[in-house]
């Protein structure tokens, strides 16, 4: 899962002539595809943007555990239960890698967590949609992970070393996520009439929210331009969205499912599918906290955090006692 709508702190790209010598040297390194490492000098804006983007990416992984975790106890076979559990566990791992990457920029994981719980930081809008049937678990893997992978693969080349390395590990591990989702969709679409209906319903509900995952059109955005100059964003939102549609439509056809878009049509001249934009008012509503599951998702994370405080404190207290006893014995 990934970051969406990261508002940069800058005011557009700084022209080269306004840069200090240090900033120019930094931009030259980025332009030369050198990796920026934690102890290197970096502009404040770069650091702040990265903290927001990586933090949001990490939060998305953690909140992203919930819609799928919702079905672990109801998975229909032992094998499916294990696959889903392993997948949701991976999301936790990916959150962990990303928090660690953010921590190299001088923030703590606990602070980031509190920023998530207080609503100061966001996570991807997609996780505020419910998973209502087992086919939704297929659709999440196929569409949501598909969209995420599309965004994450280029981020393996992002300019910040720890982020790029985390993405390499994440992309490697995620390679099975989309495939297991599509595998579920095949079973459902080719199954009984009821299963086929569930599969179509899942596609109907997840199609537009998946398109929203790439964020609104970035043609106007000054934020995107700066992020791209810093190579913490590699492709445009629109470019990725088009790529996703082009890739996904034939997959839906193979399943015998109908993409819920009357305007969907192959455009011979462009060599791409034409398609309808999602309802961007709905998108902004969800970001503001009014999605179907925002309250439940944050509530679940808050409970985990607050109910777990005594555990974190207890184990730390024990570690300190043990260390003190060891020192006393020496």
């Amino acid at each position: 899962m990934y970051a969406q709508m990261v508002k940069s702190t800058g005011k557009g790209i700084k022209p080269r002539e306004e840069m200090s010598a240090q900033e120019r040297a930094f931009q030259d390194r980025v332009d030369a595809d050198e990796r920026i490492e934690p102890r290197d000098w970096m502009p404040d804006g770069y650091r702040q943007n990265l903290i927001r983007q990586i933090g949001q990416h990490a939060h998305s992984e953690i909140v992203g555990q919930l819609p799928e975790g919702n079905w672990i106890t109801r998975a229909p076979t032992l094998q499916r239960k294990m696959i889903l559990l392993a997948k949701v566990q991976d999301e936790a791992g990916h959150g962990l890698y990303l928090y660690a990457a953010a921590e190299t920029l001088g923030v703590s994981r606990d602070d980031l967590t509190e920023d998530l719980l207080s609503g100061r930081m966001k996570y991807s809008s997609i996780f505020n949609y419910p998973t209502l049937t087992w086919a939704d678990i297929g659709a999440v893997g196929w569409l949501v992970d598909g969209a995420a992978i599309m965004n994450q693969v280029p981020l393996q080349r992002t300019s910040y070393g720890p982020y790029a390395r985390a993405m390499v590990r994440i992309c490697k591990e995620e390679s099975f996520h989309q495939r297991q989702g599509y595998d579920i969709m095949m079973k459902m679409a080719q199954g009984t009439e009821a299963q086929h209906r569930m599969a179509q319903d899942a596609l109907n509900r997840f199609w537009y929210p998946s398109l929203m995952m790439f964020g609104p059109s970035d043609t106007e955005s000054v934020h995107s331009a700066q992020s791209m100059a810093w190579k913490i964003k590699i492709d445009t939102n629109d470019g990725l969205r088009q790529k996703f549609v082009d890739q996904t439509v034939p997959q839906a056809e193979y399943l015998g499912l109908t993409v819920p878009d009357e305007n969907l049509k192959w455009n011979e001249k462009r060599g791409h599918y034409d398609f309808s934009q999602p309802d961007w008012d709905e998108f902004f509503d969800v970001l503001r906290g009014n999605g179907p599951c925002n309250t439940d998702r944050l509530g679940a994370r808050r409970n985990a955090w607050e109910d777990g405080a005594w555990v974190r404190e207890g184990l730390l207290a024990h570690a300190r006692k043990k260390a003190a006893r060891k020192t006393a014995a020496e």
């Binding site: 953690i62 555990q65 919930l66 975790g69 672990i72 106890t73 239960k81 559990l85 949701v88 566990q89 936790a92 959150g95 962990l96 928090y99 679940a300 409970n303 985990a304 955090w305 109910d307 777990g308 405080a309 555990v311 974190r312």
Partner: peptide, 10 residues
């Protein structure tokens, strides 16, 4: 498995 996504720490 009921804990998945709800534990005290990642």
């Amino acid at each position: 498995s009921e804990w998945c996504g709800h534990s005290p720490v990642l």
